[in-house]
Every structure is written in C-alpha cells, then in structure tokens.
Write a protein that binds this DNA or RNA. Structure first.
Lengths: 341, 341
DNA sequence: TGTCAACACGAAAACGTTTTCGCAACCTGT
DNA sequence: ACAGGTTGCGAAAACGTTTTCGTGTTGACA
C-alpha cells in the first residue's frame, strides 16, 4: 500500500528541488539533459502522475462538467448522458452526475454543491417542480458567477444561456399531420400538464395541426396527465369512452399504455387505431406492436450540449450575451403502430 | 459577474487575518463573539461558500465516488447509478460517472484518470473485454494505492475487494426449476458467451437445474450469443429449428427477441411456449406479452455498493483483507410470458 | 584577470482552506 | 506590584502543483 508519489518526494529522493522536478517532467529547456532524464526515469519508475486536485486548485479549472437531470432511469436522459460523456471524455473532461428527482430543492442543493469549485460548467435539464415554480434564481446566480450553463430539452426562456432543444412544437405538428394525411379523423392527445415545457409545446403542435386542417379540437380527446405513474386508468377511460381512431402521445409510456388499453378493449393497433408516440426509446422499439414515434437523438443532444459548453469554457474571450440555441433534428420513426402511411 | 468570494477577501475587507475569518465561520470559541458575528454576517451577505477543491486538497478527501460501468444506456446500469447516487448524496458524496463502452482500454484510461486524486473510491462493473482478457492490473494497482474499490454485478474472483452481486447461478436455477415444475420438457437457453461472468453463472444454473431433474442437456437448445446487436437471426434459427416449449434467456433483450421470433412463427406465448427472462427492466414490463423475469434490484445493488464504499472510506481503521461480498436477493416477477405456474 | 552572458538550478508565491502554535494584552489573586 | 492564567488574534505550515524570479557557477572574451 504505497501512497501516490508526489513531486516533493521525488525531489527529496533525487536531492534536487521541487521546481527542478516539475520542470524536468514538463521538458523545460531550463534543466540540463542529465537531470531531466534522471528525473523522468525516476518518475516513470514510480509511476508518477500529477495530482489533479492540486492542478485544479492552481489552474482554477477542474476539467469536469456537472450534469443535473431529473432522473437517470429514463432512457432519453441516459442517452443524453452517454452523448455528453463521450464528447467530454474526448476533450479530456469528466462528468459528475446529479439527479434532481424532479424536485426543486434537490436541484438547488445539487447546484450549490457543484458550484463551489467542483466543476467548470453545467449541463442541465429542468426538474418538473422547477418548471412549475418558475424559480430559477439558483441558475442565474451560477451564471452571474461566471460559470457557463447549457440547458437541454426542458429549458426556459427566463434564463439566458446556451440551449440544445428539439423543435417540440414542429415535431408534434408533423406527427399529427401524418395522422391527418392518413385520413384519421378522431385523433386523441395524451400529454402532460402544461407546466412541463416540452409537454406544452407538443400539445400546442397537436392543436396547431388540427387547426391547420380545419379540424375541430375536441377537449374530450385531450388528456393531460399529472401523475405519470398512475396513468393507466385515465388512459383507459379516454379510450373506452370516446370514438378515437388515432392517438398522439407525448411520450413512450403514454403511447404503450394507450396500446395496452386498446388491446384490452379488443381494439387492434394499427388497424382500428393508430398510435404515434414521442421519444425513440426501448419501449417503442420492443413493444408489440412496435411504436411509430418521434425520434429525438439523445446522444446527439448530449454531444452537442457538451460541445457548446466546452467551446465556451475554452474560448476565454468571455463573449457574453452571445448565446446560441441549437435545434436538433427530429424524425418520425415508422413502426407497426401506424398503418403504412 | 462577481467571482466567488474567498476567505482572503473577507479578511482584507474586514481587516482581520484569514485565520480569524476561518475560525469565526467555524464557530471557534477562540474568537470573540463580536468578531465572530461580524464575520459571519459579512460572509452570509456575500454568500461565502468554502471552495471544495481547496478542501479536497487539504483534507486529501474529495467526497466523490468514481463509477465505471460498461454503458449507461442500459436500464439495469442506470438503476444502479440511481441507487448509488441517492445514498451517496445522502452522505454528502458526489458521483462521477465514466463509461468503458465494454472496452478494456477505456476502462483503464478512465480509472487512471480518476485515480489521480479526483475521487475517494471506485464502484465498478467490469467491461466485457476486461473479463475476456482477465487483465485486472489497473484495479490491483488502484487498490494497492489504498483506494477502496467495490465491484458489482460483473465481478471477478481474481480481485480481492468488496463486492455486491446477485446469486446468478441460484436465480437461474430457480427460474429453470419453475419451468420444469410447470412440466415443460424442452427448455432452451439463450445466453451470452462464457467469458461474461454473469452469463456463465446463469448458464451453469440452467444446466444444474436440468441435471438436478435428470433431464438431458441438449446442446442444440443452448444458444450462446456473442454479438448482442445481431441476435435476432440466431434466435429465430434456434426457435424455428427445434422443438422448444420454453425458453430461459439471460437478459431482457434475448427474451423479447425470442418472443418476437415465436410470434413470427405463429407460436403463441405463453400457450405454446413459455419465456422467462433476466433483469426486470422496461422491456419485460412493457412488451406484449409482458415477460416473466428474474428481478435484480439495481437500486438496491447500487445503494448497497455505495454504502459499503462509504463505510470503508469513513472507518479509518484500515481493516484490510476483511472484504465482504453482499448478495442481493432476486425474485421471480411473474408476468404474461409464462402460464400461471 | 576582470566582466558578462549562458547555464542550471532553487526559493517562493500562488491557488483556498484548516489548524497549530505563539504572542501580546488583559485580568486575577496575593 | 508581580506571577500566572485567560482571552483574542495572527503567522505560518500544510495539501501538490506551476511558474516567475533570482542567484551561483561556469565559460568565453577582451
């Protein structure tokens, strides 16, 4: 159990100064080739690696990115992390992951915790509660301290910073338009409550599509779900009590639950009812029938977010107020839950 | 854009020494109530928070746990991280996540990167390639430096450290035994290649169950899959070319693919063929029919691992060679892919 | 031989903390 | 009035780096 060797120890061992050791290892021309090689050999022998914490303190850079997401047990967020991790790693950054569990308080606590020197910048997606309360003081505070923040997916206009999103409104519009094109007349919407930003945008897209085609927006066909864990009953009610020939759901879970509800009722998907979901995750791919869905590339989103953050970190120019919002392309992944359109 | 305030700045501003400020903030009795309150008020006003990097350097503790897993876009690993993050957070630790992508080299690189001061200990699950090569020098090295390591799920006997596992062998045995009890006679196994530790153990459990019941182990009914991404064809072959009335699969993907293959052939699950999978994730829950599976509680595993690591970190006693292996209970989650047993 | 540059290296500051120790100034009791 | 004990605070070391600046030794050159 040998502790990690430090410059000081090498210096002592070789009877030179710490400076000499440091310079030797960094191949400074100040040091004679003799000592340089001697030091380097010794360092290699003892497997010297500079202590990153000490470097962080000295350089005031940690080469670490902080991530705050609502939860990780959620395929989309997992893919985003994966995307972040890969480009971060490529650029020599580590990622430190914290979960808000959709709680405002945890989001704040985690942010405070990381903001005290542990990281160089944030990549985050807002918790539901934060979106509900519209309280973003913790984020502005961090930004004011000069720490860059990149938000993705669940963002807000109340904060000025770099963002990576998809065009939820457009994607929803296009998905519903597809259903309309395929001659479906009674298209239901299963969505979240309005304060969830992406839910609201997708809802708007649905409404827009109907209106653009002069179709009536029937509020009975719009189900807004608050508690995602207990959506089954509500969705069954929706399907059992209405004449519906297509469903647009704002996430995978709602989509698959709708299919199960239909199946229970003897409604065949896609013959009697078409379903389009949102997010191309595990569920859409492996459920039976597999689900046509709006694919949002989480890996790409994460990668882009990391890219933007690192760019900002590494251009010292402090070009404030030059924030960009990147829009990642979505695409409809056609599967079995829709008839060949 | 005000930089974070430091002790030094407070000291200067209040015309006292840094020591005085530090002590005041830590409520030292050495300092008069007068100055103490004055400093505290000032600190609160400027929202002083100690710099964690500086503390890490001083205390030689980062209060951060390093995680190395094969991939994160995998429900089981995501749940484990979730478990780790929650107990870590509770104890005041952060987690830094790195992915090996099943690659030995990335595993080594990530380990080296984190071992240089960034973290206090590791929680990890071996990459496939590492298991194949049986090269664990990077892990022993880290352990020898006095940094605790907790391994979970994909572990190895070649390393002495704390471990959290499930009894893969027993769980597989019991699952297969269930099938046998239900009078299935031709039970196929879809598993991974042998070097994946958990795959091997589950395979052994399958064999053991058959033998224990004096059933023949038919190698035609055992499919070992190397490339998990292209398993469909092999699984279809297995099902199409053999008389099979039940399938035991060592993961969700194989299970759902088997069901799809059966469906394609007009075989009804569970009436004509029963399926039991492994890992109670998204797929098992939402596929149709939903899949009976061996549940391994990732949250619990992660939580336990974090607990063990933190315990070891916080008992200075250095009680080496007293490593424990925790076995997390599994349980069969009965769903639609098996007849009521 | 004296001067000046080149060379090779070391001392020290800095990053932001905590903590040990020392040292004044004051107070107490005789 | 003086020994001894509090009280309140500051200096400095330490954690492990990097880097600036200084400095002593050499060699060359006039």
């Amino acid at each position: 159990m040998k502790r990690k060797v430090t410059l000081k120890q090498i210096a002592k061992e070789l009877d030179v100064s710490i400076s000499t050791v440091s310079k030797s290892l960094r191949d400074s021309s100040e040091i004679s080739e003799d000592t340089r090689l001697k030091v380097q050999a010794f360092a290699k022998l003892y497997n010297y690696k500079p202590n990153l914490i000490a470097l962080s303190l000295k350089n005031r850079k940690t080469k670490t990115i902080g991530i705050i997401i609502p939860e990780i047990v959620h395929h989309f967020f997992a893919t985003v992390i994966s995307g972040i991790e890969h480009v971060a790693n490529e650029k020599g950054y580590n990622v430190i992951v914290t979960l808000s569990d959709e709680s405002f308080d945890k989001e704040v606590i985690n942010m405070d915790m990381l903001a005290n020197g542990s990281i160089d910048g944030f990549i985050m997606s807002l918790s539901k509660e934060t979106q509900l309360r519209k309280d973003f003081h913790h984020i502005t505070e961090v930004i004011n301290q000069g720490m860059p923040v990149v938000m993705f997916d669940r963002v807000t206009n109340d904060i000025l910073c770099d963002k990576v999103i998809i065009d939820d409104n457009l994607a929803a519009f296009e998905a519903v338009q597809k259903l309309i094109d395929a001659n479906f007349k009674h298209i239901a919407l299963i969505t979240t409550v309005d304060y969830v930003s992406v839910g609201k945008l997708r809802t708007d897209g649905y409404v827009k599509a109907l209106k653009a085609n002069n179709m009536e927006v029937d509020s009975n066909l719009i189900l807004k779900i608050e508690d995602i864990d207990n959506c089954t009953e509500q969705i069954e009610n929706l399907i059992n009590n209405n004449k519906i020939d297509a469903v647009f759901a704002v996430n995978e879970l709602f989509a698959v639950t709708a299919i199960k509800a239909a199946k229970k009722r003897g409604i065949i998907v896609p013959d009697d009812m078409a379903v389009i979901g949102f997010t191309d995750g595990i569920i859409s791919k492996y459920s039976s029938p597999s689900i046509t869905t709006v694919g949002q590339n989480g890996i790409e989103m994460g990668g882009k977010a990391a890219q933007m953050l690192i760019d900002r970190l590494e251009t010292e120019l402090e070009e404030e107020e030059h924030y960009k919002t990147e829009v990642i392309e979505t695409h409809l992944v056609i599967r079995e839950s829709t008839p060949t359109l």
